[in-house]
Design a binder for these strands. Sequence first.
DNA 1: TTGTAGGCGTTATCAA
DNA 2: TTGATAACGCCTACAA
Lengths: 350, 350
Amino acid sequence: MGSSRSGMGSTRKTTTIQDVARHANVSSATVSRVLSSPERVSEAARGRVLEAVRETGYSINQAARSLRLRAARTILIAVPNIGNPFYSTVLDAVIHTASIRGYSVLVAARIGEDPNRWLNDYLLSNRADGLLVFDGSLDTSSLHEIMPTGGSLPLIAAYDEWPDPRVNSVLTDNRAAAHRAVEHLLDYGHRRIGHIAGPSRNASPNERLVGFHEAVQAAGISADPEWIIPGDYSMPTGIRAAERIAALKHRPTAVFCGNDEMAIGFISRLRELGIECPRDISVMGFDDIAISEHYWPPLTTMRQPRQEIGQVATDAVLDIIEGTLPGPGPLHVTLTAPLVIRKSTVRINS
Amino acid sequence: MGSSRSGMGSTRKTTTIQDVARHANVSSATVSRVLSSPERVSEAARGRVLEAVRETGYSINQAARSLRLRAARTILIAVPNIGNPFYSTVLDAVIHTASIRGYSVLVAARIGEDPNRWLNDYLLSNRADGLLVFDGSLDTSSLHEIMPTGGSLPLIAAYDEWPDPRVNSVLTDNRAAAHRAVEHLLDYGHRRIGHIAGPSRNASPNERLVGFHEAVQAAGISADPEWIIPGDYSMPTGIRAAERIAALKHRPTAVFCGNDEMAIGFISRLRELGIECPRDISVMGFDDIAISEHYWPPLTTMRQPRQEIGQVATDAVLDIIEGTLPGPGPLHVTLTAPLVIRKSTVRINS
DNA sequence: TTGTAGGCGTTATCAA
DNA sequence: TTGATAACGCCTACAA
């Protein structure tokens, strides 16, 4: 009974371009052309092929296509922590921008200890055509070995700071923005200003911390070292900082936090310790995450243009991939973080 | 001058398995074996091959591998909004779990209007081996056409509600959890309880809203229809709800919000209108997003096990892909959301 | 244990 | 405008 024609029944038979060709009475080459450059095919053939595609439920095999084209139409994004609302907004913009231009987005957990291997894995293995690196733990020094002599490496760094000018980058003007943040506090009459700092990486100090120092110095005042507390951009760090500040006899009247999450942790813990913001102390953050506007008190902060960062970085890497980048050398885009004044900072009479 | 030996200089020559084979004086088959099942190769050959791999800087071409193996070792996750802190935490867990098992994660912007096409695009085109759908806008009815008669479709739905029992799912016990939330408020002596509801989809009411109604009814009390305000899980919705509640003569003493973001918007706006939580009104949320613990007042809420959702869903889809799923029929996992009591709800004497 | 060879599904080249 | 054909780089029978 029955022939052994098609093997086991529960396996989904994948329909190929050949199947479509047979249905439409054309060659596979014609089918391929209909799919990628329809204008180069006669109307009659095109009609038959499209009909056959519908009939057979054909769906192109991307693996084969990537192999042949040596392009995956996929970019990879590396973030230190997607759970972080900051990165998730950026990721959203990246995915949106990429999908508009017909690219998929692969998200990497994290770069391992060997960035070279990591780069190879993705770029050279034809899984991704370009890289978006939001993870500052990538060591840039090892990048140059891979960089092609000719064109731009399809890699954009969009981290807080990126000391290496040879790498394409899209960043916020962290240092200048921190400067402006402190100026806002000075403006409000504060002279005793503290800072909860973000992490500094190997020998390169945190840019926001540098901006803080610059501004303080420019104002001709001095910040007590006890008012400058190291942190890592996490809420618990802000909480611990609150405990240290609360324990001081001589407290700052205002604190500029390296990001909003530390500011929120800081304010929350201070409140539990009986110190109210902004009544007893002014606090400001950095980033303007979604919650900041609705926190109590609504947070004064420097708004990072997260959507823009994601969009600009994505467009840039796709431009490199497609060879449509305007200029030659490495790309450097700097975005400005505007000051957003809310209720967590108040004027004092000094 | 100079020979035309290798073509243009700026193009990166991709090294293949053949190049490695030549370097090691073995066949390409041996190289392949060293890479995938080293134990089937003599130690001497293995050594030479590994050395050659290092020398040549070889990196496997994933496109070719996927084509040959008919597997991409990649899963795709569809989320309605990655910017949302809820989904970003889940995504984090998904990526982590997948990467442990050697899979990459592709993130889709959104399912288009035609879920069938979307499924085809990814599943049948060999770009992803499995799908994780967190986007409730996917219409399930059209799924069945694609479902293979035999095994399980490598697709897990992990949305708020999933009425179709034929689809594999991982969900929180939304209805029961909402029930417990209301019971907590009853416990605290509240009898006038309102609700800010999440969105209901086509003919299927929001599960948390249903749980609310059930609990209210079970308690033998009645909720004024004016106290039940529709929302969409966004902060602005909570803000608008606050305005409506504030305008009422006869207000509830407690409000259960469909999620934390609405609760935060609600509390913030109420405060501006002179109504303090928890002094004047108790409010609770749902989800327990990162900020909730540090908001003021710290939010009482039902904690959704986000990490667990991501992890369980990922493991499940990979089990299906690898054929190691224990049971036969569709998979249904329900996770429990525990009550977290903080300071936004207080006892009253009724 | 190792090598030979064929094919996974596409697209690009070259003729017709 | 169309078709035959040869890669793209890898894995895996099958043979040695």
